[in-house]
Design a protein around this nucleic acid. Structure first.
Lengths: 228, 228
DNA sequence: GTCCAGATTTAGTGTCGGCTAAACCTGTGT
DNA sequence: ACACAGGTTTAGCCGACACTAAATCTGGAC
């Protein structure tokens, strides 16, 4: 409705909503009120109210009782936050001794406070990386992003060797466990055994053998490879 | 009145008020409502209201119509913010290419977002500095701070050589000018001439001669020295 | 001692962004 | 075809913090 809501000068809250909606509505799907509420740990009515305000600001499209979608404007703002978040994570891991399974919270607060200048300087000293420490792609300053194809480790047949390229970070405890056994993006993994019916998966990584549950296998993503 | 208002979990606003009051009330003096309002660029009634809330929180002592003073609790919180601010400035200058005359704003936002952990890591990689890029002392984590004695350049008699140890950063334009002619903490300066009646001061620094107004001479502070 | 200018506080409002309780849709099962 | 469960929205509320206008205090001039 309203024209250009300056992408800077959005509230901390608004930025969080946009990021959440971006995560929940890939490929033009709709994000529901309750999904957003759950992700942000807010009540459904609070979300309903904010959704109304944001759609009046022109940042999203609201179909009552169906859900919301980002407008181009909203998407730009969301991607800007994603870029910030992932670059901050990368920076903290590279230069300030953070472990890749624990940076999330710090980045969550910093992403609302840094200037564009600072973000770009961090990007520069990092050598303009294209993925963050969890293997998630970092959107370019212009908002372009390409999600490299990947398949969950749980779907790799026994006998294959793959490289972990991404780790789902939505469950912190799992993230910590994965980190504790040395699995992280870049590591080579050989699937030595896979039990049926969502059974345990046996893998070899860096010379050590681990048996992990099917659940964990759905949180680790590998680059699909044509070799052996 | 109230017991322990956790020093963490203060609002951005509250943190700004405490910092301002700390600056305005050295040595147990009182900060007036209008001074605070002016420094924070708020209306006097806004300050009055916040002062009431903060004194109910036990962070400051309010004597109506006279002014406010920090309590021990408030002082701790304020010093925590000052430490954050100055360490962030030092970090940005040292590692991210900021100039010492332009870091202030960035630090102003970041100081509210960083965790204690991050601040201490920045301090560590900096080698636990005791002064920031403007020469202002950085409070220790326990809140202790020692303001080294210093005198304005404007009061140094002609003929003396001194080292600049601190620069008042309250006027950004002056700060920029000072930086542009190469004057900064650590630089040696010889006062070659000083005109009476708040007249211009002639100095030599790093082989170059500058004539600066008395005003600028009050913004640059030097370590008092017993030598020549 | 009184008066007045200027500082301070109180009164009353507004916005942002949360909440709960209640009303309302919508789609599924029978 | 309809009822009902569960998700969604509306209504009404609250707290933090800003504002302006009005009332109030305080200290200095005379």
């Amino acid at each position: 409705m309203n024209a250009a809501a300056a992408v800077e000068s959005l509230t901390r809250s608004v930025e969080d909503y946009l990021k959440a909606i971006y995560r929940l509505s890939p490929e033009g799907r709709h994000a529901s009120t309750s999904e957003i509420a759950h992700l942000l740990e807010l009540s459904a009515p609070s979300v309903s109210g904010m959704v109304k305000r944001l759609s009046e600001l022109g940042l999203l499209e609201h179909v009552p009782y169906k859900g919301v979608q980002l407008t181009a404007e909203g998407r730009r703002a969301a991607l800007r936050m994603v870029r910030r978040h992932r670059l901050i994570e990368a920076y903290l891991v590279a230069f300030l001794g953070y472990s890749w399974d624990g940076v999330h919270e710090e980045a969550e607060r910093l992403e609302h406070a840094v200037s564009d200048t600072l973000v770009e300087r961090m990007a520069a000293v990092l050598g303009n990386p294209t993925v963050d420490p969890h293997g998630d792609p970092i959107p370019a300053p212009d908002g372009s992003i390409h999600e490299p194809a990947s398949v969950p480790l749980a779907e790799i047949p026994a006998g294959r060797t793959v490289e972990i390229c991404r780790v789902d970070q939505s469950q912190p405890e799992r993230l910590r466990y994965i980190a504790s056994i040395g699995l992280k993006p870049g590591v080579e993994v050989r699937v030595t055994d896979r039990q049926p019916f969502r059974g345990p998966i046996t893998i070899e990584a860096e010379g050590r053998t681990h048996v992990i549950g099917h659940e964990l296998g759905q949180v680790l993503f590998c680059a699909p490879r044509d070799d052996r």
